[in-house]
Amino acid sequence: MSRIEQSHESLTLPPARDAGLLAIALAGVSASGPIMAATAAPALAIAFWRNALGAGSTGLFVGLRHRAEFAALDRRGWAVASLAGVFLALHFGTWVPSIKLTSVASATALVATQSVFTGLIAAAAGRRLPRIAWLGMVLAIIGTALIAGADFGISARALAGDGLALLGGIFAAAYVTAGASARREMSTSAYTTICYSVCALGLLVVCLAARQPLSGYSGKAWLLILAVTVSAQLLGHSLFNVVLRSVSATFVSLTILIEVPGAALIAGLWLDQWPPLSAIPGLVLLLAGLIVVVRARQPGAEPVPDLD
């Protein structure tokens, strides 16, 4: 994963080539939740291997190419980038287990509330938000409550999954905030190398402390772990970053929200995991609220990160 860069804010349609890349990226990120739900391995182990493989595939190349920049970084730069990595580990350490407890549709929708929590953090820091953004947050909160109510009627396990997905959204928002601060003094490559390495190390420590097996899986499980790494990062968010040369960050952020119904559709067709009818009004209202929040963003606002 790499952080999506800010671009101009127009919502004009992308060129045909970039529209195709966006479609591939959307298919990649939409498949990540269902793939992890189908993987017969502990959730925390899936989170670790996905990040370790992703960081390892680019970390060595970036480390050799940017040795001078790493050497020039001060303590604050290392500390803030490492803090972002801790928040990223907490994000994956809560969201991936949530997929195993509740439906893919609920988990994907609820973790997308990171946009709401990012706005709330910005407001707490003194940034003035447009009124329409607050309206979107209210809609999203109501939708969240409806989803939680529907899942409570199913089982306490599903409700616990909803809670973990919400925590994943909160930690994602903290990751965005810390990452924005770190990026003011370092390149994307240096930042992501430090952040993702800390994230993988943190998840490794948690897996070892919780005695989660990190090996001994079936061949199919390893293929699915590799598949989620490729689909979410190489075919997903890497391509989102590519199209930002011609597409606004707001357009990409709105496009990413299609992951919510996309993941639900894939989970339904592949895993026969359809959201209960009672949860659909909440899912629709939450998605509508998130669209309003993202659409209300102003030039200079922090972009949506690529996480899931």
Rank of each mutant, 00 (worst) to 15 (best):
F87Y: 11
I24D: 13
A37F: 03
G169I: 02
V62H: 03
Q6V: 13
H91F: 11
A40M: 15
S248T: 10
I256Y: 02
V111C: 11
L129I: 10
A263I: 04
A107Y: 08
L139I: 03
A79G: 02
Y191S: 05
G202V: 09
S32L: 13
H237Y: 15
Q273I: 05
T144M: 12
H237I: 04
E69N: 03
A232F: 06
P34Y: 14
R157D: 12
S32V: 11
P14T: 11
P213R: 10
L88R: 02
G85N: 05
A200R: 08
P299F: 01
G300K: 07
L307N: 01
F251K: 05
A148G: 06
E5G: 13
A89W: 01
V252Q: 09
A124Y: 02
A160M: 10
A221I: 02
R65W: 08
G63Q: 01
I24F: 11
I170C: 05
V86M: 06
F61N: 03
I170F: 05
L307F: 12
D74A: 03
A174K: 00
L13Q: 13
A47S: 14
Y175M: 15
G202W: 01
A133W: 13
T250C: 07
L244N: 03
L286W: 04
R65M: 10
T12G: 15
A267T: 03
P97R: 09
L26I: 15
F171T: 15
R128A: 08
T144P: 00
V294E: 09
A178E: 01
A165C: 04
A227L: 15
V96A: 06
A109H: 04
S106Q: 08
S155E: 06
G54D: 04
R128I: 05
V260M: 08
A43C: 09
A156S: 14
V260W: 00
G56K: 12
V304K: 01
A45I: 14
W270M: 09
P14M: 11
E302Q: 12
L26C: 14
A19N: 10
N51H: 07
V29R: 09
A71L: 04
T255S: 13
W78D: 00
G93V: 10
G202Q: 09
H237Q: 05
S7R: 12
G63M: 12
V260Y: 00
A124C: 07
L203M: 13
R245E: 10
P299I: 00
F48Y: 14
A173V: 05
L73E: 00
E259Q: 15
P305D: 02
G289I: 06
A158E: 07
A296M: 03
A124D: 04
A133G: 04
G289K: 05
A41F: 15
E5L: 11
A180T: 06
P34D: 10
C199M: 14
T229A: 09
S7T: 15
V104M: 07
A47V: 08
L277T: 13
V260L: 02
A38E: 07
R131V: 10
L265I: 15
T118F: 06
A173N: 02
I266P: 06
V111L: 07
L53P: 05
F48D: 00
A47C: 09
N51E: 06
L283A: 01
V86P: 02
T12D: 15
C207A: 15
